[in-house]
Design a protein around this nucleic acid. Structure first.
Lengths: 210, 210, 210, 210
DNA sequence: AATGAATGAGGTTTCATTCAT
DNA sequence: TATGAATGAAACCTCATTCAT
């Protein structure tokens, strides 16, 4: 015997966890985090009340697991973009954003929950989210200053304001196309639009001689 | 007797309402909407349980009142901008945004509550917020198409994407400067930055001859 | 001046009382005694909460007043039957019962309230009702024994059982024709039927020679 | 494992139910339905507030259960009477009534509650009671018309009035001997008296030749 | 490992009553 | 006399959590 039994048990545990997570996702989506009770979760999962506590210590632990899952997915997607390859920063940005949009779109229910409910929750949830935000902000700042060095970016920018604008643009595009709507969309095309908007704004390309 | 008594009573009622609203605001800010109980509210207001229900029919009614108050302030501030064509659209946008930022900054605690908690609440709250969003979106769309007519705006824009970017930019700037931070700021300068970013992006002004 | 003011005041008091009693009757009929709150009563009466307490010390005091009113009406009606006149006891019973039915029918809303709700109420209500019951029971017993003396009544009756049967018959007839139904009815005819039933039952008049 | 555990659990559940029902009966008897609070019930049952709601969804659900229990008992008792025509209808009536009286007497506390409090309660309670009433009324009507065919019943009866009298007689006898009094009684003898009264009234058997 | 009955603190809401005006 | 805002006890009900089986 030896490991066989342990392994099988571990696998069973993982499956149970998944089962609870999946059904919880549906309930959260349906009723909203705060209106959902442990009773709702165990009922949806089809397990006994006690069993739930064998796998999660609280409702917010379930949510935290979901959040980690989504953040993991996004990080995985983003890290797939090779930063050393021979494409312009602009193109890199488009690719990153497109991948993010695709990933979130592939996990729409989860994304919805997180975007709609991950507010005013646990302290830990807030922390993890703002850490993520911070990473993005840092990356944007870095990219902006890099662009400045290459004169690809204006010098008179207030990077605090501009990075906020950039983040907000991305966040709202996610809200509009992934969270609020249910339609499929062309992630690449949208990503390109966003990046182009960020680079040159809405004004027409200034024509020489104007 | 006449109205004297009635008037005084009405005034007292208004004051009580305000007293409850103000203390509730502090509690919501402190504990978060969902973790706040009616008990917390009455305790903070220093009134009896029953008194609370004389003025509000539920916790969410209190929140709704706050929301209406903030939306009213913002609408008032915005409507003060001179719509006559004495100033450019760009300058109008800057002024509107600056006023919004100022108003929200003047009501920081209230703004924080709304931005942090008005998500996944009541159906009515969601409705009122999305109605407000819709108004802004409509205004932006209108302005964009106006700009297109005057060739002040590129013709190849996906207005859905771009209006999302614009709204997101504004929303995030509010988050960054009003909600998350506690510092004073120069609303006009920030507004100008945002509008400029929206118009010409982060790229350096293309030089004639490049 | 002197009495004029006092009198007028007394009259005003009586009117207020009546106003409250009348509207309370409607509310009791509508919601049932136990589901009616003082708030309901003052709202229906169109007076302030405090005013109610100037006239009645509690909800059950209102009910007690109504009960007394109905009992008074019934007693008045019954006492109108001259017991010394030259009609048979049987005819007297018919007249009494007919008058009771008529009186209750004339006060249907009030009767309904009393019959439907005067159960499990105040101790005082119970007392007053059972005192009334007792009076009727005594009267029946008296009449039965009188009848026995005149050989108008069987000698082998268990007066306890029979008086219960008689009272029950009357009570249920009231329930059926006054309380449950809304139709007009011929009180005299019904009274006659009840008395006849009481005297000779449902069996056919035994024919001589059977 | 198998069913052993499930079975035992089911039995425990039934016992708990009974425990709550029994103690609730005592409390209702003591304080009256409307003056009884859930707190009173749980205190009397010696269980936690939450436990009560595991077994009954409201106070009125408890009452409804009691009502069903009593109606069930009565129906069971009545259905035990031999409907074959070996005995006269008169004797059948006596037996049925005697059994009803015995059954109610065997469940005096329950009977008291139902008779004293089942008025102006739930809509559902009213419904169930009037359904029961209707069954009895129908049975009486049927028996009367049957009697008419056999000339055992007068032809000039107003069946509406007479059936009301009969029902009332029975109801009041129950009130007098089971509900109001605490004494034992001879159900058969009382039943016979009631039936005899119903058949021939209080008048002396008319003597041939009078 | 899994169960689900039991718990009781704590949530929301109602309501009879008082009392300053 | 009339008012109605204020009160706070007490009603109803929910729910996260435990624990014996």
């Amino acid at each position: 015997m030896g490991d066989g039994r342990t392994e099988r048990a571990a696998k069973a545990r993982t499956q149970r966890r998944r089962q609870i997570l999946d059904s919880s996702l549906r309930v959260f989506a349906d009723k909203g985090y705060w209106r959902t009770s442990i009773s709702d979760l165990v009922q949806a999962a089809g397990v006994a009340r006690g069993t739930f506590y064998l796998y999660f210590e609280s409702k917010s632990a379930v949510f935290l697991d979901m959040l980690d899952e989504l953040l993991g997915c996004v990080e995985g997607a983003v890290s797939g973009v090779d930063p050393t390859q021979e494409i312009s920063i602009q193109e890199q940005l488009v690719q990153i954003l497109a991948r993010v949009l695709e990933t979130l779109s592939d996990n729409r229910p989860l994304t919805r929950i997180i975007f709609r409910e991950a507010v005013g929750l646990d302290h830990e949830v807030e922390q993890r989210l703002s850490r993520f935000d911070e990473q993005i902000r840092t990356y944007l700042m870095h990219t902006l200053s890099l662009g400045e060095q290459f004169s690809a970016v204006r010098q008179d920018l207030d990077t605090q304001v501009v990075s906020a604008c950039l983040m907000g643009a991305v966040r709202e595009v996610i809200q509009a196309f992934v969270v609020r709507s249910d339609d499929r969309f062309d992630a690449h095309s949208i990503a390109r639009q966003v990046v182009e908007f960020s680079l040159v704004g809405v004004a027409p390309k200034s024509q020489p001689g104007t």
